[in-house]
Amino acid sequence: MNTEDILELFVLKCAALKREVDEFVPQTGSGADSKDIVKIEPLLSQFSTNIRNNAMEMAAHYKLFYMLENEIRRLIDDTLTEHSGGPDWWDIYAPESAKIEYRANLQREQEAGFTPRSENPLDYVTFGHLGDIIRSNYSLFGGILSNQKAMGRIMYSLNNLRGPIAHCGLLAEDEVDRLMLTVKDWFRLLEGPK
């Protein structure tokens, strides 16, 4: 084999290896604009390997909880919009504690000069308030959710699991199992009354 053949074989092996690694390793910011990835990559390399590995481990849990929490927000918004006849359900159905939280968070962001995160007040309340909104209007969700006590237990468990996920902690192995089971419980709850 001459030098040119060795070099060509090396390049082909590297390409095959890269393809295998790309399929195995989750891509940073999957779905993100490649310009954003280019901006963040130099910053990531400054952190310790341990912190980067923990971030990759927690990213899957964050993704799951992000989808679940936003699906719950959508369920609340759709259900209460339907019952109120329009998008002004907030004034009618939101408990006072949620309205106070909304106003405080909105004001804090306005005073900081931040871009508004949403026009929907529901996007400004905590996960705990989502449970409060469902509980205070359970008669409107009763045909969707199978059991009010189960809903309360599941929302309580999810709220506790949310802490380490949303606040850059780590979930213990048992809590990862609990998260998976509780998400399954949520979807079972959505099967409605039997």
Rank of each mutant, 00 (worst) to 15 (best):
H83V: 15
S84H: 14
S84D: 11
S84M: 11
G85Q: 09
G85N: 07
G86E: 08
G86F: 12
P87I: 15
D88V: 12
W89T: 03
W90F: 11
W90G: 06
W90I: 01
Y93C: 09
Y93L: 10
P95A: 04
P95M: 04
P95C: 08
E96W: 09
E96R: 07
S97A: 06
A98M: 02
K99A: 07
I100Q: 07
I100C: 03
I100A: 06
I100G: 02
E101P: 03
Y102M: 03
Y102R: 00
R103L: 14
R103P: 00
R103T: 01
A104V: 05
N105W: 06
R108K: 13
R108Y: 06
R108A: 10
R108G: 01
R108N: 06
E109W: 09
E109K: 13
Q110F: 12
Q110T: 08
E111P: 02
E111N: 13
A112S: 13
G113S: 09
G113Q: 10
F114L: 10
P116V: 10
P116I: 11
R117C: 13
R117T: 08
R117I: 15
R117K: 15
S118Y: 07
S118F: 10
E119F: 14
E119K: 11
P121M: 04
P121D: 03
P121Q: 01
P121L: 08
L122Y: 12
D123R: 14
D123L: 00
Y124P: 01
Y124A: 03
V125A: 05
V125T: 05
V125E: 04
T126M: 06
T126K: 04
F127M: 07
G128F: 08
H129V: 00
H129R: 04
H129D: 02
L130Q: 03
L130I: 02
L130R: 05
G131M: 08
D132M: 11
D132K: 13
D132Q: 10
D132P: 00
I133P: 00
I134N: 01
I134P: 03
R135P: 00
S136Q: 12
Y138A: 10
L140S: 10
L140H: 13
F141I: 04
F141W: 07
G143Q: 15
L145D: 05
L145E: 05
L145I: 14
S146F: 01
S146P: 02
N147L: 09
N147I: 07
Q148E: 12
Q148S: 13
Q148A: 08
K149E: 11
M151C: 14
M151P: 04
M151D: 00
M151R: 02
M151L: 15
I154Q: 03
I154S: 02
M155Q: 01
S157E: 08
S157K: 11
S157M: 05
S157T: 11
L158R: 03
L158W: 01
N159L: 09
R162M: 07
G163E: 10
P164H: 01
I165F: 06
I165M: 08
I165E: 01
C168M: 14
C168S: 13
C168H: 15
G169W: 04
G169Y: 06
G169D: 07
L170G: 07
L170T: 09
L170D: 10
A172D: 14
A172Q: 10
E173P: 07
E173R: 11
E173D: 14
D174E: 14
E175C: 04
E175K: 14
E175T: 00
V176E: 03
D177I: 14
D177M: 15
R178V: 06
R178H: 11
R178I: 05
L179T: 01
L179C: 06
L181E: 12
